[in-house]
């Protein structure tokens, strides 16, 4: 290797790592500054600069206060109920739909696919204007099952992930089961569904994070925040009179994003691959 090539390689490496460090710094800074502030006492918060580290990393007062003030105990229960139901129902609905669309040829198959695709292009915020009226008529406002029902609706990405997965499962498997006299229900539940497990895990993680973080519809349809707040909407408690006590607010924010962080650390690979496979197809 000549000197030029060598030094060129070193420069390239320096640029490479500097860019990574620079952008990682900006990606982390907003969150890390919140963590720092969340550990400060009221006095420290008022007297020191926000970027000065707290005296004690064991001062959990803000976390306890934020948890109680925002009623996050209730909120975590609500979010868990919503999460479990939404994941359960949307998995059953989504896999069944994908099964029919992938395995059966019938007139209207393409039409149904296109209907789901088109639905995903409609911006949610705009659609909630008329959906609000429908929710109102169905008495679904301030009604947990109502919100869950809305959240189970169309989810094209999951359907695409499932359809893609079905395409890779050999149809001769179905055919030999039919020869053995198995019904379609049996084929789906006994043979195909177990094989679909990796796809189910992937789309559940994506849908789970999305559901946990959803706040716009939760705010519209679960307006009674004392009873029906989710973890995300419980943070609305800090709007208003508490709006400048950032040590408290930051603690609340950190609590709310801990579950997402844990899931992320545990399931990085599935999240990445889920995003990629969903996006390429769409």
């Amino acid at each position: 290797m000549t000197f030029m090539e060598k030094s060129g390689k070193i420069v390239l490496n320096v640029i490479k790592y500097l860019s990574l460090i620079f952008f990682s710094f900006w990606a982390l800074l907003p969150v890390v500054s919140c963590v720092i502030t969340a550990f400060k006492t009221d006095r420290e918060y008022q007297e020191t600069n926000v970027m000065v580290l707290p005296k004690s990393w064991l001062n959990f007062d803000n976390f306890v206060n934020a948890f109680n003030k925002a009623g996050m105990g209730r909120a975590f229960i609500n979010s868990t109920i919503i999460l479990v139901c939404v994941l359960l129902f949307s998995t059953v609905i989504g896999t069944q739909l994908a099964y029919v669309l992938n395995r059966f040829k019938f007139p209207g198959n393409t039409l149904i696919r296109n209907m789901f695709l088109f639905a995903s292009m409609l911006p949610g915020v705009a659609m909630q204007i008329p959906v609000f009226e429908i929710m109102y008529k169905l008495h679904f406002i301030n009604f947990l099952p109502g919100y869950i029902t809305v959240m189970c609706g169309t989810d094209v990405i999951a359907i695409y992930i499932y359809i893609q997965f079905f395409e890779n499962i050999d149809i001769s498997l179905d055919e030999s089961a039919i020869m053995d006299g198995a019904s379609y229900f049996t084929i789906f539940y006994r043979i195909l569904l177990p094989l679909l497990k990796p796809a189910i895990v992937t789309s559940c993680i994506l849908k789970g994070v999305g559901t946990y973080n959803e706040y716009y519809m939760a705010n519209l349809y679960l307006q009674d925040k004392t009873r029906f707040a989710t973890v995300a909407t419980s943070l609305y408690t800090f709007v208003g009179p508490l709006g400048s006590k950032y040590n408290l607010i930051c603690a609340g924010v950190i609590i709310s994003l801990l579950p997402a962080l844990i899931v992320f650390i545990a399931c990085q690979k599935q999240i990445y691959s889920g995003l990629t496979s969903g996006a390429v197809k769409g």
């Binding site: 907003p30 919140c34 994070v209 946990y212 973080n213 706040y215 943070l235 930051c250 994003l257 997402a260």
Partner: peptide, 14 residues
Amino acid sequence: LINGIAIGFIFKFF
């Protein structure tokens, strides 16, 4: 992966 409301607070603070 951070929820929208939290992002709102994080950047009001930021």
